[in-house]
């Protein structure tokens, strides 16, 4: 897992980490069931406060990206996880909505937008 913290970013540190971890979980850079560094290890590695990393893990666990196994630590949630699936659907819908809005604002017809989407999916 790769995490870059920008001190000059407008986003608070915990949000920067959450976004990057989510992205890497979603795109498969970190595979399911992979063990994550402990809260204190992560704080040490990134030189940030323990409270910040605790918040990151709590948020990610609440959203279903990671699971906490008591006594063992934190793991990337399995793909078939309901919460994660919902989350992914939500992210997809959110992205699509943005895409449609932007496309319409640019004056595209609905057919053109769909065509653009299809082109994306074909790679």
């Amino acid at each position: 897992m790769k995490i870059v913290i920008k001190n000059k970013s407008e986003l608070p540190i915990y949000e920067q980490i959450e976004q990057q971890m989510k992205a890497q979980i979603l795109d498969g850079t970190v595979t399911e069931d992979e063990q994550l560094p402990s809260i204190r290890q992560l704080a040490r590695d990134l030189k940030i406060s323990v409270i910040t990393t605790t918040r990151v893990y709590n948020d990610l666990a609440d959203e279903g990206f990671i699971i906490s196994v008591s006594g063992k630590g934190y793991f990337v949630a399995p793909r078939n996880n309901e919460l994660l699936r919902e989350r992914m659907l939500f992210e997809m819908e959110d992205g699509l909505e943005k895409a449609v809005t932007n496309g319409r604002n640019a004056g595209l017809t609905d057919d053109e937008i769909v065509a653009a989407l299809r082109k994306f999916m074909e790679g």
């Binding site: 204190r40 704080a43 040490r44």
Partner: peptide, 12 residues
């Protein structure tokens, strides 16, 4: 110093 302290506090 921040490095050293980060390492130190890894012990809860």
């Amino acid at each position: 110093l921040l490095d050293i302290l980060s390492e130190y506090i890894e012990d809860e």
